[in-house]
Nucleic acid binder design. Structure first.
Lengths: 127, 127
DNA sequence: TAAGTGTATTAAGTGATTTAATACAATTAT
DNA sequence: ATAATTGTATTAAATCACTTAATACACTTA
């Protein structure tokens, strides 16, 4: 479910946080479903349980999880989290547009590229 | 000319690399102009000369600088570097468009946002 | 000749990350 | 009840990248 990249300079716990964020926001992990236990995921990834614990604490702090002692960690999906991510993406788009403009990418080219990416995305799910 | 952010989690040498990359690509530092000496910049930023040396080595490896022993480091501006950056920006735009789409941002909204960012950028330089 | 340049080396310090070994409380399964 | 599994907390050590420090050497310029 999760694969760690040891060439990545980012810490392991941060990689884990990111992966689960995406899985939760995309709905791959359903709301209120149980997360892998700290120990089992540690075994699966061949890393220390403390590192998993740290990742889970972060996720809980951010509102992606809730914990029941003795039972486990559970997905705390909230539509507001998706909105937050959405806003982050739009903010990134603003910044990127600025940069593109500074480096000589015309609005027309940027728009065309955007449309192409969207078209490619829609192609993906034609099953 | 350069300001370090000690709250930033990224290493100092990396921050320095990024700042000079931008200054060079934007033409603030002219081609073949002399870079601050390793020692003088170290004093100016109150950090160790070795850290500056590391940043400069990176910049040289990437083709932003060239070195003349005993004389100094000089800006090696090459239009191809700007093209490389341009391609990186477009690649980022592709990825971001994909993500935006996955998170329910319509193509219309993304396009509109892009246009607004461009318009804002053009406002900036009305002097 | 002296001062300023880049470069190289060796050593030490620093701090975040990760591992390790336990222990304890709560819940679930047997 | 008892054992197993869960999250959580603590303390200690190991590891690693980053940074500093102190020199030294070769080359260029004033």
């Amino acid at each position: 479910m999760i694969i760690l990249d040891y060439r990545d300079t980012r810490p392991l716990y941060e990689q884990i946080v990111d992966k689960f964020q995406t899985l939760i926001l995309k709905g791959v992990l359903e709301p209120n479903s149980r997360m892998p236990s700290v120990r089992s995921l540690a075994v699966e990834l061949s890393i220390n349980p403390n590192t998993i614990q740290r990742a889970y604490s972060e996720l809980e702090r951010m509102g992606f999880l809730y914990t029941v002692k003795g039972r486990g960690n559970f997905v705390a999906y909230d539509e507001s989290l998706r909105k937050v991510r959405r806003e982050e993406i739009l903010a990134k788009l603003d910044a990127l547009a600025q940069e593109a403009r500074e480096f000589g990418v015309s609005r027309e080219e940027a728009t065309q590229r955007l449309a192409a990416a969207y078209a490619a995305g829609e192609e993906e799910r034609h099953d």
